[in-house]
Design a protein around this nucleic acid. Structure first.
Length: 268
DNA sequence: CTCTATGTTTAATT
DNA sequence: GAATTAAACATAGA
């Protein structure tokens, strides 16, 4: 499910289902996902609260309720929200359910097969939320400011793009696809990128994100190179390869994604 | 059985 | 301290 486009889609669903609703009953006993992990404390904070707004930044969703209560949802790798009827049987991957009153859905349920997601209640914004960098869909992308935030870093550009404090919401798919569009090798260190390179990356991110929106984050066919190692590069025909960067599989074209040597630097 | 997966945190190492 | 890397987490599907 989860990169920024998917999270925005889920956020819109939740807003539709939860707007103005009051939380009547909670079943959230998965201690791995829920914080505070005690169902009693979790329920006490949310029961009887009314939903004011639902929004997101990057991969985090924030549901604001009355009395300053906030519920943060991170979808991890396999998280999703669905609307359901009160008393509907729960499937194998359902991890929490909230029964609502008002004109919204009867209930909403959080599903998460792998259980990497989180549901956190707090009376304030949590650090995971506060630390997030700009969200490309809400704050836009700007080459100059992205270049400024990359300049002091030496790590590989792809790892930096996936760092949620640099940009909020970029995941393995968008980072991989964007760098291919920009023709930049994902291993290139941030500090050797020129402003022109960063501008190309911004263009690549826009293209990759637009593609995700068009396909609603679904369908293998939307990928140009993600998951396509050993297949021909759609641009130059060379054989795509897979490497591991920051623990994540990364596809790239060794032919048309070149590292950028920088004349004034000898890191290269 | 083995390998991989749209993510993040934490421990270990340099 | 900063930065990098590996491991861990949990489950489903090829």
């Amino acid at each position: 499910m989860p990169e920024l486009v998917d999270v925005h889609i889920v956020t819109a669903k939740l807003w539709r289902w939860m707007r103005g609703a009051k939380v009547r009953r909670i079943d959230a006993s998965d201690r791995r996902i829920v914080r505070p992990s005690s169902p009693a404390a979790f329920g006490r904070a949310l029961l009887g609260r009314t939903v004011k707004t639902v929004g997101c930044r990057g991969k985090w969703i924030r549901i604001e309720l009355d009395e300053g209560v906030r519920l943060f949802s991170h979808l991890g790798m396999t998280g999703d929200w669905v609307a359901c009827k009160r008393g509907a049987p729960k499937g194998a991957s359902e991890r929490a359910r909230f029964e609502l009153s008002g004109r919204a859905a009867e209930a909403v349920a959080y599903l998460d097969a792998r259980r990497f997601g989180r549901l956190i209640v707090a009376g304030h914004d949590i650090p995971e939320w506060t630390r997030l960098g700009p969200d490309p869909l809400q704050d836009g992308l700007n080459a100059r400011s992205l270049a400024a935030s990359l300049a002091p870093r030496r790590r590989a550009i792809k790892e930096a793009l996936m760092d949620q404090t640099v940009l909020a919401g970029i995941g393995n798919i968008v980072a991989t696809e964007a760098l291919w569009v920009a023709r930049i090798d994902p291993r290139t260190r941030c500090n050797v990128l020129s402003l022109e390179d960063v501008a190309a990356i911004v263009g690549g991110l826009r293209t990759a994100i637009r593609t995700e929106i068009k396909h609603k984050g679904e369908g293998e066919g939307r990928f140009r190179i993600y998951g396509r190692a050993d297949q021909p590069c759609p641009r130059c025909g060379a054989r795509l390869v897979a490497i591991v960067l920051g623990g994540r599989t990364t596809a790239l074209c060794p032919q048309c994604q070149r590292r950028r040597p920088h004349p004034s630097r000898k890191d290269w």
